[in-house]
Nucleic acid binder design. Structure first.
Lengths: 120, 120
DNA sequence: ATCCTGATTAGACAGAAGTCAAGATAGACA
DNA sequence: TGTCTATCTTGACTTCTGTCTAATCAGGAT
């Protein structure tokens, strides 16, 4: 398996990193929307809690870790969901969230830097 | 010319991706600040133009690609500079920008997903 | 049915961010 | 010196965002 293949598999579907070729406006808008979702300390922590958990995470377990109100947590989770970084499901009284790893990997690849560009 | 030099973790080896372990508040704040800089379509395009160029880029070559005023471009470039994603230098009449690839790679690694998490 | 708990939605508000016009600054050159 | 060009900074305006309280919704249990 070539490096090229590994890269495209890990990129969550596609995309040339911005260090390789300039983005067109459409991709820039989509990418910026995802970065905007990660551009808040609380949302980034929420994303990291959900992404690093081995299982789905209950909102009830997340909320106590933060010093903002429940509705605010709910708002931030919705922002993450609307850009496809997480998804959720109600199960009985509780709501559970899980990460969408391909979406996260896509945005990571978008800003990744080829090794040659790091060493020069 | 700009303030950069940030955490210790970004040199070479980098940080622990958020899919591996939850972020503490300090790293979440720093990461969110960098994502905020990328969370605008114009800034993301600016970053991609600068990062993908083989040479330093003159502001005079960038500005015509956008439909906003010169001061607005200047403002966006400053935002990118303040989070350490680019740096610049005046040379004669013109100002040249170049990318800081390690900083970009740091934020990319922060949200990268281990292969095992993509296939399960 | 009615109540209780967990979570989301609606509405309001302060502060942040994007934009532009006008002015300031840096350097080249006559 | 003065002027010209490229870029940045300032100040103002408008829109967007994060946060709260209060109200609403979804399910379980009494």
């Amino acid at each position: 398996m070539s490096k090229q293949q590994v890269t495209s598999e890990r990129s969550g579907g596609c995309c040339t990193p911005i260090s390789v070729a300039a983005l067109d406006e459409a991709l820039a808008s989509e990418g910026a929307a995802v970065f905007k979702a990660l551009a808040d300390p609380i949302r980034l922590r929420l994303m990291s809690i959900i992404a690093s958990a081995r299982e789905e995470v209950c909102v009830c377990d997340i909320t106590p870790d933060f010093e903002v109100s429940g509705p605010t947590i709910s708002h931030h989770l919705r922002v993450l969901r609307e850009v496809g970084l997480v998804d959720c499901e109600r199960r009985g009284t509780w709501v559970y969230y899980w990460p969408m790893p391909q979406r996260l990997q896509w945005i990571s690849t978008l800003i990744s830097v080829p090794e040659v560009a790091l060493t020069h």
